[in-house]
Design a protein around this nucleic acid. Structure first.
Lengths: 337, 337
DNA sequence: ACATCAAGAGAAACCGCTTCCCCGCGCACT
DNA sequence: AGTGCGCGGGGAAGCGGTTTCTCTTGATGT
């Protein structure tokens, strides 16, 4: 006898026998089917509430072929960006009666495809954040995941709704801002090598240098952590640049801390920009000039794109690009005379 | 015909007919049942991988009466504490092949019970974080959720594994630390009124004043945000206390910022403690003395308690109290002469 | 009064998988 | 050679619902 439970839960059959009807009728009543006589329906409802009956979602899922659940695959749940996406997604999905199943690939990109497949099998759709996955693998995976929404990735073969933050655009604007302030020697403190969003920033900076050939731009290896920023302060201080573009706010805050320990003043001696506009960015000393990414809107929109596909109202919706919004604060200022 | 899918997925029957065996045999092979002839097993495996067959989890769940999924109910996913718990839980559960379904009650405590019930029906167990739920409701709800782990709550009627952070103990130790440094006039910048963890801190401080009758302790209404801390700086500066216990790190950072704007030096003029040891606490100027709560261990342990109940190796495991660990940093110093 | 029909409820099929039950087969033992 | 037995695989019964199909029943029309 498979699936026996110690304490058997109340099932549709219990309600049916209590109300003196067939379980088909109980099912009809529970699903609001109006072809049931009002008296009988009332009797069923009484029995159901008497027994505190709630339909078993697993049984329903099997019969209906849907689980009212969507999966999200993230590379690292400790990353505030993914936390915000998850939050936005979860709240938006909940409004439509859907739940969210999470799959954390722990930065192991070889796991991502497997996790996504598993999640898809349990859920009605998948939101995939897989910054490290190769393009080839993504192209192959995407069609098998069908109701799929991509974050910060796009596919060519199958048209898949994608939500991408335009990091390249953002960093260009920050660089342009520094130029406006008179800076001619800039440096970019890079993020993790294999990070897709770091690559996008580099692309954006290529365009920038093409546009401003007279501006000098050098690259300093950095990272995405406070400590990485902190430890880069020597390299930054000695590189001769007066305007520093940092990969993200966390590293920028580390750098800020390191510079202040060396007695280098921001923005008097050096201008500094971050990226992400995390909550504390406005509270550093000085407050950080940065680029805001509307990430919780992103989670919300991810759900909307997912819902469109599940309901199949209209299929193809193109990639949405999110231009970051530049926040001018105290960490950037005119170049020293 | 219920549950028809547009593109029918490959099922166990397809594998069975391809391998020329019954689906019972396929099932046995897929589940590693050794009573299958090696040749046949191999044939089945070939067919399965040929068709890329993966068992449908919903079908399995129904047959087995388990979903390999646990639910977590949180009041607010934007709260770093719950993010950390979620992360710890998710990673630990994943190691044992379980997934996590999230339910965000958006601080609406009336939703919590409903969400928890729904989650329980879909999952093999529930981790419940419901700081605002009334004791009565919790007592009534707990038995219906059986494989249940509580965070920062306990029950009396049904013995339920609980993981509670001993905020009272932590704040007492911080206060004692200030006394050791010579402070005799202390103030507590409170958290949100209805927050259970704020109440626990207040309880701890009651004990503290009983133990140190010669120390003066006053209370200043605060909050749990940076801005709340910032705006309290006047009240703090004028209250005459030399040692300030702040509800949490975020508010403490706000206060720190406000004080520095007023030219009040920390720790020379005023000593300051936070609570939580959030990642940035060590990077403020000066670094924040605070109490570290091992929250991701907490997620990890939540899973372990859950697993114990699911496997039913041993039933009752008592409440685990987590004493916060005091981190002495630069924001506290000897009282001014 | 009889035929037609619509409404409403029960029986049964089905979703995809696991596992119990049982039967056929080959081997060993008497 | 006949019986007992263990092994392995097929058939079928579930898991808990939804939905189609079918049949009963009461109302309506002529």
């Amino acid at each position: 006898m498979p699936g026996r439970r110690n304490t058997r839960r109340v099932g549709i059959a219990d309600v049916a026998s209590m109300a003196g009807v067939s379980h088909a009728t109980v099912s009809r009543v529970m699903n609001g089917n109006t072809t049931v006589d009002a008296d009988i329906a009332a009797r069923v409802r009484v029995a159901a509430s008497e027994l505190k009956y709630k339909p078993n979602p697993v049984g329903r899922s099997l019969a209906l072929g849907k689980t009212d659940t969507i999966g999200i695959v993230v590379p690292d749940l400790s990353n505030p960006t993914f936390q915000a996406i998850l939050r936005g997604l979860s709240i938006a999905a909940a409004r439509d009666g859907y739940r969210v199943l999470i799959a954390d690939s722990s930065e192991v990109s070889s796991e991502e495809a497997i996790l996504a497949g598993e999640a898809r099998r349990r859920c009605d759709g998948v939101v995939l954040c897989a910054p490290r996955m190769s393009d080839a693998e993504l192209e192959e995976l995407a069609p098998t995941l069908y109701p799929l929404v991509l974050i910060n990735r796009t596919t060519e073969s199958v048209p898949t709704p994608s939500l991408v933050v335009d990091y390249g655009q953002g960093i260009q604007e920050l660089a342009a801002h520094l130029v406006e302030l008179g800076h001619r020697k800039l440096a970019y403190l890079t993020g993790p090598d294999r990070s897709a969003s770091n690559v996008q920033r580099l692309r954006g900076l290529e365009k920038f240098t093409a546009e401003y050939p007279d501006v000098e731009l050098r690259f300093i290896p950095g990272g995405n952590t406070f400590d990485a920023g902190f430890e880069s302060s020597d390299a930054v201080a000695s590189c001769g640049a007066t305007g520093i573009l940092v990969f993200n706010d966390v590293a920028a805050m580390g750098l800020l801390s390191g510079l202040s320990q060396r007695g280098i003043r921001v923005p008097e001696d050096l201008s500094l920009t971050g990226f992400d506009d995390m909550p504390f960015a406005r509270y550093t000393m000085p407050p950080l000039t940065t680029a805001a990414v509307p990430i919780s809107d992103l989670g919300d929109l991810a759900w909307r794109r997912m819902r469109e596909q599940i309901q199949a109202n209209d299929a193809a919706s193109p990639t949405n690009y999110f231009p970051p919004q530049i926040k001018l604060r105290g960490s950037t200022g005119p170049v020293k005379a």
